[in-house]
């Protein structure tokens, strides 16, 4: 589904290199977790995959379902079925949730050759998907993320994921800032959305999330590279020992 080869990414503004030859392959229906210390480049990877401006890919390739992902604009990627749940969801005063979802869902559906939903069907879908993450349906008449609590914002991201039914979803620290109940709700939502046609990339700082969403693979991202890959046990090991031992190991290897 997604194959990243030797990806080098710099900040456009000052040329600082953040990703330094990253390789990652995610197959259909797989759930991969990426862990790593703060500042190691996890959000940068998510942003570059989603097509955010301000980054320069200096080397490497990203194939998404066989296409060159990097050739596509951000909105095209989304319509092709790539989804990013933001670490910091943006507030959009004056843009109502319902209009936002309508525009998004219809754009994506139109691109994928699906027929447009009637407003009744769209409403019904919103109701069902909101229930999935225990989001108050009254939120749909509010402005996007405006005045939402931290937890509501995160659940709203998963709600949008559910509405857009992407092939590939990146969750950037969706767990951080959530209490245990909210974490469970989010995890249940994600688990519900797992399917053989849908892959996930879970970016997280803590192992905790992976108790609830059990990944197929765990990768460690440090200094702009995947330095270690393992099964779900790796997350536990990281939780116990931190990241320093990996540093030692990789420097020894180098």
């Amino acid at each position: 589904m997604l194959e990243i080869k030797n990806l080098h990414v710099s900040i456009e503004e000052d040329g600082t290199e953040i990703l330094k030859g990253l390789n990652l392959k995610v197959g259909s229906g797989e759930v991969h977790a990426i862990m790593g210390p703060n500042g190691s480049g996890k959000s940068t990877l998510a942003s570059v995959l989603a097509g955010k401006d301000g980054y320069e890919v200096t080397n490497g390739t990203v194939a998404f379902c066989g296409d060159d992902l990097l050739e596509l604009a951000a909105d095209e990627r989304a319509r092709e079925g790539l989804f990013l749940a933001f670490q910091y969801p943006i507030e959009l005063p004056g843009v109502s949730m319902s209009n936002f979802l309508k525009q998004a869902v219809q754009s994506v559906r139109e691109h994928q050759g699906k027929e447009a939903l009637t407003s009744g069907a769209l409403l019904q879908m919103m109701k069902e998907k909101a229930a999935l993450v225990h989001l108050d349906p009254a939120l749909k008449s509010r402005s996007v993320n405006e005045g939402f609590s931290g937890g509501e914002k995160k659940r709203n991201e998963i709600f949008q994921l559910a509405m857009l039914e992407p092939k590939f979803a990146i969750l950037d620290e969706t767990d951080s800032g959530l209490d245990i109940d909210a974490l469970r709700i989010v995890a249940d939502g994600v688990n519900h959305l797992r399917s053989p046609e849908r892959s996930f990339l879970l970016i997280t700082h803590y192992q905790r999330l992976l108790d609830y969403i059990v990944p197929d693979f765990v990768h460690v991202l440090m200094n702009g590279r995947i330095v270690m890959t393992g099964g779900k046990e790796l997350a536990l090991e990281l939780e116990e020992k931190g990241y320093d031992w990996i540093k030692d190991e990789t420097t020894q290897l180098a």
Binding site: A74, I90, L92
Partner: peptide, 14 residues
């Protein structure tokens, strides 16, 4: 820009 990106990341045309 961030608001625009957020909308585009949901598939909405620029």
């Amino acid at each position: 820009e961030d608001a625009l990106f957020y909308l585009r990341a949901r598939g909405i045309h620029p």
